[in-house]
Design a protein around this nucleic acid. Structure first.
Length: 899
DNA sequence: GATTAATGTG
């Protein structure tokens, strides 16, 4: 590298006095030949421009940038000032040869005396003894570049052409350089292409300048052409070529350059080797990076740091620390901040809290924690090791300057560790307390937290904020994926879909987020279609994708699709993933194939708590509670799996069904012992289990104990529990208390409440709540709500009202169901009619029912039973015959079971 | 040579 602090043109250049020279130019004797007149014209323009150029103020920085590539090493470059003052310059120059002039001009250029070099040229033109030759020009052109004087440069080019001095390698390559530097890239390339013979210098100019201008494709093209033509590139060219591979992400061309560097000994230049290492690390080829690292004879801190950081990123803290120790062993190098940054990163990536803590201590000792980058990396390390509370404490202590990155990092820490509320709180604090503006990363960090909290309102606000800030979701795939996922989780599937379709290049994560969104919104079919689209658009599915594919199959209860997905997993090597195995067990369970589940389960060599839970919960869902409890005791006997809240909930639910009072108390004790008494979900299940077993007093006292930890679902469970224990009034009272406690009743609340009223014969109350649900809470009544109402009217012997309810269809503000088209509703009426022996209405309901669902054998049975109860044997037999003729009796009445 | 980001199993 040249010394950028070398004295540039600071003192005024020796000013020519135009008056002295002009008479010479204008003397008649000088203007005889056409060449001479060209010369005079040029000198005139040169003189008119020079004073202006001298006043340029940004010389210094410009030179610093240009010098490395324009300054050839000159063997005899003495100080230019010395030369100017020398006797040689003052006394003898006028009589010297062109060669002497050229040498002197070059010496000035090499010493950044660009102005003097041009003045010297002017003197040469005026000299009666010498004339410029082609070799005079390369340094002059470089001086023009140094002076930022394109017009003089282009003038020189014109002059060259007129003198016929073209087609000389040195001249042409200087011209190429000059045009490149002045941004006339097309002209430069054209000149380059027209050169009859090229030298390595011109190639190097072109490579470096393409690189400096960001034309990476061209850098590599010229570089490769240079090698093919047998020229050896200089360090700068190799540097730019590697940079170009990095920027273009071209691994294959990077490999070619890697081989070139190794073969030609460029790896011994530490700067080149370091760059090559960082290229390989960028392409996640740690092995190749290490290969280059090993080739370096004199490694510097950067070489070590690069490798340490590379291993750190990949989570290989053993290698990272190993290198750190070897570095210290070598003795002469001192670890820098970047070294520690790499080590802290390694601990975070590997989740190695112990090493992380020891480095934390060391940083405090050597006083480096005040460095805001290191401070942030420590915060991040604690978050990544699952100790986000500690991360928060360090952040709050303000031992280092808080940057946008440190806020972002802690928000990410909270969000990734499931501290959604804290993440949101910190985000809001950042907006209020700091002067920092949230960026795309802030949003990408906080969006999952809002999504987990199902805060659709905030998701929409952030979406608007992103658009307002001009952040292009198209360009930021991580951010747009987070948005798609958030809309899916908040059940705004339209927003998710429309955002997804706008994303130009969705990646695996984006597809996964969208597929997951479809699954969450009970659109498993759409999820499957999207999976196929993913395959068509050549986005490679990963293990997460197949987990969700299996979920879709389970959701659709399609054994056929599920088996196909199973086959796909086997063929693509996903079946060895634990999560995939778990998802597969769940899929078979949902498809009713317990045998396959059990087979898979037993064949899995690696299990975790989720594997067990999947089996447990699967059995509970299909009502095989005894199997679930057996499974649970087996799990406990293996003694290597830590139970979690899902395990306990499954066991509680199994006990509730098995209806064992004893079991219930055991599981209650277990719940408390394992410390799940603060887990709302587990406690809700326990309340439910007691209620289902008629132990309403236990349920009630537990519900009371829960106090603050109650959620909406706790109230729903308790209301339903009262209902099934014949405590209709208590259920009604609970609704008012629930509202007082600030919980909004939802559709499930009313299902439970209507059922409670129905069981306790509180018909008028039920009607009032039904009205309240529609009018006050704007909840569309579901099929369950309607059938419950009809059922209740039937029980109360108020059949006519039930019939009227069906006929009236729906209140005007609801629009999802056409009641008279739902067979379940008529079925409920038919059952009620049988109890009440209302033949006329029953017949009407039955006929309607068979028209709506002619394949459901259960309805035929229902109708024939009605006739039988009324002793209308002929009609009963007729209905039976019709169903037997249709072969319906042989089919299991699946749809009635599902109801 | 350097710190922060998205998708998943019950």
């Amino acid at each position: 590298m040249q010394n950028a602090n070398a004295p540039l043109i600071v003192q005024p250049a020796p000013q020519p006095t135009p008056e002295k020279h002009i008479p010479i130019f204008s003397s008649p004797a000088q203007t005889s030949t056409p060449k001479e007149s060209v010369k005079h014209e040029f000198i005139k323009s040169l003189i008119s421009k020079l004073p202006k150029i001298a006043s340029h103020t940004h010389f210094n920085s410009f030179h610093a940038r240009l010098l490395p590539s324009i300054t050839p090493k000159h063997p005899s470059s003495n100080s230019a000032t010395e030369i100017t003052n020398s006797l040689f310059f003052k006394e003898f120059l006028p009589s010297k040869t062109t060669f002497s002039w050229n040498s002197l001009i070059e010496i000035f250029t090499v010493n950044y005396r660009f102005l003097q070099s041009l003045f010297l040229f002017k003197k040469l033109l005026l000299s009666p003894f010498s004339k410029p030759d082609p070799l005079t020009f390369p340094p002059l052109l470089k001086s023009c570049v140094g002076l930022l004087a394109p017009k003089i440069g282009f003038g020189l080019h014109g002059y060259l052409i007129k003198c016929g001095f073209r087609n000389l390698v040195a001249v042409d390559s200087s011209l190429v350089l000059m045009y490149m530097k002045f941004g006339r890239i097309r002209d430069a390339v054209q000149l380059f292409e027209e050169m009859p013979i090229r030298d390595s210098v011109s190639y190097n100019y072109l490579v470096c300048d393409f690189g400096a201008n960001g034309f990476y494709e061209d850098v590599l093209m010229v570089f490769e052409r240079m090698l093919k033509s047998g020229f050896l590139p200089n360090m700068d060219s190799v540097f730019h070529a590697i940079m170009a591979c990095c920027e273009l992400g071209s691994i294959s061309r990077g490999m070619l350059i890697h081989n070139f560097v190794i073969r030609n000994g460029f790896a011994s230049y530490v700067a080149i080797a370091n760059l090559l290492i960082s290229m390989h690390l960028k392409f996640e080829r740690l092995d190749l990076g290490r290969q280059v690292f090993n080739e370096i004879s004199e490694r510097d801190v950067v070489s070590w740091n690069s490798m340490i950081t590379g291993y750190a990123r990949s989570g290989d803290w053993v290698q990272a620390f190993g290198l750190f120790l070897s570095m210290k062993k070598e003795g002469h190098l001192v670890p820098s901040r970047v070294t520690f940054l790499g080590l802290v990163l390694a601990c975070g990536q590997a989740g190695n809290l112990d090493f992380g803590k020891s480095i934390h201590g060391r940083l405090i000792r050597i006083g480096l924690l005040s460095d805001f980058r290191l401070g942030t990396s420590i915060v991040d390390m604690y978050s990544k090791c699952g100790r986000v509370e500690d991360a928060g404490i360090i952040f709050e202590e303000e031992l280092f300057e808080r940057s946008l990155v440190s806020w972002n990092s802690l928000i990410a820490g909270y969000s990734q560790n499931g501290y959604d509320y804290e993440a949101v709180k910190l985000f809001k604090r950042m907006l209020l307390e700091s002067n920092l503006k949230p960026d795309a990363i802030t949003f990408a960090n906080v969006i999952p937290a809002f999504a987990s909290l199902a805060n659709l309102h905030m998701i929409r606000s952030i979406h608007a904020l992103i658009l307002k800030k001009g952040i292009k979701l198209d360009d930021d795939i991580v951010l747009s994926t987070a948005m798609v996922d958030a809309y899916g989780k908040c059940l705004d599937i339209e927003a998710a879909t429309s955002l997804f379709t706008c994303i130009g290049k969705p990646n695996v994560a984006t597809f996964n987020a969208m597929i997951s969104g479809y699954n969450l919104n009970q659109l498993a079919h759409h999820a499957m279609m999207l999976f196929l689209e993913m395959l068509r658009s050549n986005v490679l599915p990963d293990s997460i994708t197949v987990v969700m594919l299996l979920q879709s199959c389970g959701e659709l209860e399609s054994l056929k699709q599920g088996s196909m997905a199973h086959g796909y997993c086997l063929s693509k090597g996903f079946s060895s993933h634990l999560t995939v195995g778990n998802a597969m067990i769940d899929m078979y369970m949902r498809c009713g194939c317990t045998k396959s589940s059990l087979l898979l389960f037993s064949s899995m060599s690696l299990k975790n708590v989720v594997t067990w839970n999947t089996m447990l919960f699967g059995y509970v869902k299909i009502g095989h509670s005894v199997m679930a409890l057996k499974m649970f005791s087996k799990m406990q006997s293996e003694n290597q799996y830590k139970l979690d809240s899902v395990t306990i909930i499954s066991v509680i639910q199994a006990c509730a069904v098995v209806s064992a009072r004893h079991n219930g108390e055991i599981v209650h004790g277990l719940t408390l012992k394992l410390g799940f008494d603060s887990e709302t979900l587990a406690m809700n299940s326990l309340v439910d289990a007691y209620a289902k077993n008629g132990l309403i007093d236990n349920a009630r006292s537990l519900f009371k104990q829960m106090g603050e930890s109650r959620d909406q679902s706790s109230w729903n469970v308790m209301i339903a529990g009262c209902g099934m224990n014949g405590k209709g009034e208590e259920a009604c009272m609970l609704l008012s208390r629930m509202e007082e406690d600030g919980f909004k009743p939802n559709s499930i609340t009313f299902t439970s409440l209507l059922a409670s009223c129905s069981h306790s014969g509180l018909v008028d109350e039920a009607c009032r709540y039904f009205d309240m649900m529609v009018k006050k809470y704007k909840i569309h009544p579901s099929l369950e709500h309607w059938t419950c109402m009809i059922d209740m009217f039937g029980r109360a012997g108020r059949l006519e009202e039930a019939y009227q309810l069906i006929k009236s269809g729906l209140p005007e503000n609801s629009g999802c169901l056409v009641l008279s088209d739902c067979d379940a509703v008529w079925g409920a009426l038919l059952s009620a009619c049988r109890t009440d022996m209302n033949m006329e209405l029953g017949k009407l309901a039955g006929e309607r029912l068979l028209r709506l669902a002619p394949d459901n054998c259960g309805y035929y049975t229902l109708l024939s039973n009605l006739y039988a109860s009324g002793k209308r044997w002929d009609e009963a037999a007729k209905v039976r015959r019709v169903s037997e003729d249709g072969g319906l009796m042989k089919k299991p009445g699946l749809s009635i079971v599902k109801m």
